[in-house]
Design a protein around this nucleic acid. Sequence first.
DNA 1: TCTATGACTCCGG
DNA 2: CCCGGAGCCATAG
Length: 115
Amino acid sequence: MKADQVEPNFFEKVYEVAKQIPYGRVTSYGAIAKFLGTARSARMVGWAMNASHAMEDVPAHRVVNRKGLLTGKFHFDGTNLMQQLLESEGIKVVDNQIVDFDTHFWNPQQINSEN
DNA sequence: TCTATGACTCCGG
DNA sequence: CCCGGAGCCATAG
């Protein structure tokens, strides 16, 4: 670890954005990363999600990759917990992939627009 | 300090 | 859209 490490806000920012995801909506790591200004660090968003296990207010299940694929489902306790959570919000999931992902997609920049 | 890894994404075919 | 390859960047060991 370097003394002058990256802004500790990175994780918090990811959490903040994730918390802002409306019910029944989903977004991608890249969208969050881009919103945070670290578009190249989409993977880091996923890393932050991994650390979000300690955060109860972070709906990591609403964050998927650009294809709407539940790539992180294996990181949840249950084998299909992530899918159940999404389906519980009215989102259809088939073959670990969100149906009509484009329709359910939510852009972090819509935080104020969505209302 | 260096190497390996990953809940990603982009690009070309 | 699928497939293979490359890029990016923070964290772990």
